[in-house]
Amino acid sequence: MKRTRSSFLATVTAASALLIALGGAQAEELRLLTWGGYAPDDVVAMFEEETGIDVQVTLSNNEEMIAKLRATDGGGFDLAQPSQDRIAGAQEEYGIYKPMDVSKINGDLFIASMLEGTKKNTAYDGEVYGVPHVWGTSGLVVDTKKAPEVKDYVDLCSDAVAGKVSYRLKRPTLIGFAFSMGMDPFAAYGDTAAYQTMMEKVGEKLIECKPNVKAYWTGGDALINLLRSGEVVAAMAWDTGGWKLNEENPDITFVAPASGALGWIDTFVLPAKTQNEEAAYKWINFVMQPEIAAKITASAGNFTASKGADAFAEEALKTRFQGSFPQEAIDNIKWYPPVPAGLEDIEGKILDRVQAS
Results as ranks from 00 to 15, higher is better:
F47Q: 02
E49C: 00
E50D: 13
E50F: 01
T51Y: 03
T51K: 05
I53H: 11
I53Q: 07
V55E: 05
Q56H: 14
T58G: 09
T58Y: 10
S60C: 12
N61D: 14
N61H: 13
E63G: 08
A67C: 09
L69N: 08
A71Y: 11
T72N: 12
T72M: 09
D73S: 14
F77N: 06
L79R: 05
A80E: 03
Q81T: 15
Q81G: 10
P82I: 01
S83R: 03
Q84D: 13
D85C: 01
R86P: 07
R86E: 11
G89D: 01
E92W: 04
Y94I: 00
G95F: 02
I96N: 04
I96F: 03
I96S: 04
K98I: 02
K98S: 15
M100A: 04
D101Y: 08
I105H: 10
N106C: 04
N106S: 13
N106H: 14
D108E: 15
D108I: 01
D108T: 13
L109C: 04
I111G: 10
I111F: 10
I111V: 15
A112F: 13
S113T: 12
L115V: 09
T118C: 08
K119H: 09
K119C: 13
N121C: 05
A123M: 07
Y124A: 04
Y124K: 04
G126E: 12
G126R: 11
Y129F: 15
Y129H: 14
Y129N: 02
G130H: 08
P132W: 01
V134L: 08
G136S: 11
G139L: 04
L140D: 06
V141E: 03
V141F: 15
V141S: 04
V142W: 02
D143G: 06
D143H: 13
T144V: 10
K145I: 07
K146C: 06
P148K: 06
P148F: 05
E149F: 12
V150A: 05
K151A: 14
D152S: 11
L156S: 11
S158E: 15
S158V: 08
S158A: 15
A160I: 06
